[in-house]
Computed example of a mutant assay.
Amino acid sequence: MGLIGGLLTTLFGARRNVVVETVEAFRENAEAGAGRASDHRAAVLAQFAAEMARERRGGWDRFIDGLNRLPRPAMAFGTLGLIGAAMADPVWFMARMEGLALVPEPLWWLMGAIVSFYFGARMQAHGQSFEREMVEALGRMRAHRSGSIPGPAPAPAALPSPRATGPDAPWAPNAALDDWMRTQP
């Protein structure tokens, strides 16, 4: 055994463990994986903490925020309640559905427009905040690459083209992507 150990030490050096390195090519190092998972959990918790940290708001603002959170759960629980009512008392449920059938069509259109505008406005607001976050992240990335101190970057008028090159391009040159872009019309 001493001969094989001496041969492996000669070939690979005294500080290397060839068996461990070979096994790690096929199976993750559990200790390193646990460390990465711990770092990931810590980063997720830090992100959640940053999202939940808000300035103290007044009672009216909290009340309105609570009202804004009610429509979707109310619709979901209301639908589940209707299903339960249909199973519990079909005659009662049928009478309510006949009443709904008597609602004039323009009133259904009006209700659909109100619900569409409500959820559409929420979707628009979330989309715009996402765009602002992406522009800020792009500014931080540019500042990081240029070596300057990151700070709030001014919002550009539009995101740069993926064909942009030069020192202020937000991504590193990629030969395969450049070749593919040349073949596109």
Rank of each mutant, 00 (worst) to 15 (best):
V135Y: 07
A143P: 05
R140I: 02
A137Q: 15
A155I: 13
A157Q: 12
P167S: 11
L138N: 09
E136Y: 11
P160W: 03
A143Y: 03
I149D: 07
P156G: 12
S161F: 02
P152K: 03
P156E: 13
A143G: 06
P167V: 11
M141W: 02
R145E: 14
G139L: 00
P154N: 08
G139M: 00
P160L: 02
P160R: 03
L138C: 10
A158V: 15
G166Q: 08
A164M: 12
S161K: 00
G147W: 04
R145L: 14
G166M: 05
P152F: 05
A158L: 09
S148N: 12
I149R: 06
P162T: 00
A164F: 08
R142H: 10
E136R: 13
R142I: 07
P154A: 10
P150H: 00
P156S: 14
P167Y: 12
G151H: 04
M141K: 01
R142D: 15
A158E: 12
P150R: 01
S146C: 10
S148V: 11
A157R: 12
S146Q: 07
G147P: 09
G166I: 11
H144W: 12
A158K: 13
A137I: 06
H144P: 15
G147L: 05
A155E: 15
G147C: 07
A155G: 07
A164L: 09
E136S: 14
V135R: 06
P160K: 02
V135F: 08
P160D: 04
R163G: 10
M141Q: 01
R163F: 15
A164R: 06
M141E: 02
T165P: 13
P160I: 01
G166K: 06
A137P: 08
R163M: 10
S146H: 15
A164D: 07
H144Q: 11
R142E: 12
P162K: 03
E136C: 14
G139K: 00
V135K: 14
G151C: 10
P154S: 10
G147D: 07
G139T: 00
L138I: 05
R140D: 03
L159G: 04
V135A: 13
H144E: 15
V135N: 09
I149P: 15
A164E: 10
S161G: 02
S146A: 07
S148G: 06
R142K: 08
T165F: 14
S161H: 01
R142N: 05
H144M: 11
P152L: 08
P150A: 01
L159P: 14
R140W: 03
P156K: 12
A143W: 04
A143H: 02
S148W: 03
P152I: 05
T165D: 14
V135W: 10
S161M: 00
R140N: 03
S161E: 01
G166P: 04
P150F: 00
P156N: 09
M141G: 01
S146N: 15
S148R: 05
G151L: 04
G166L: 08
R145I: 09
L159K: 03
A157Y: 13
G139V: 00
A153G: 01
P162F: 02
R140L: 04
A158S: 13
G151E: 08
H144C: 12
L159D: 03
A153T: 00
P150T: 02
L159Q: 04
P152V: 07
I149L: 07
P150Q: 03
A153Y: 00
P156R: 15
A164I: 11
P160Y: 04
E136W: 09
P160C: 04
P152T: 06
A164W: 07
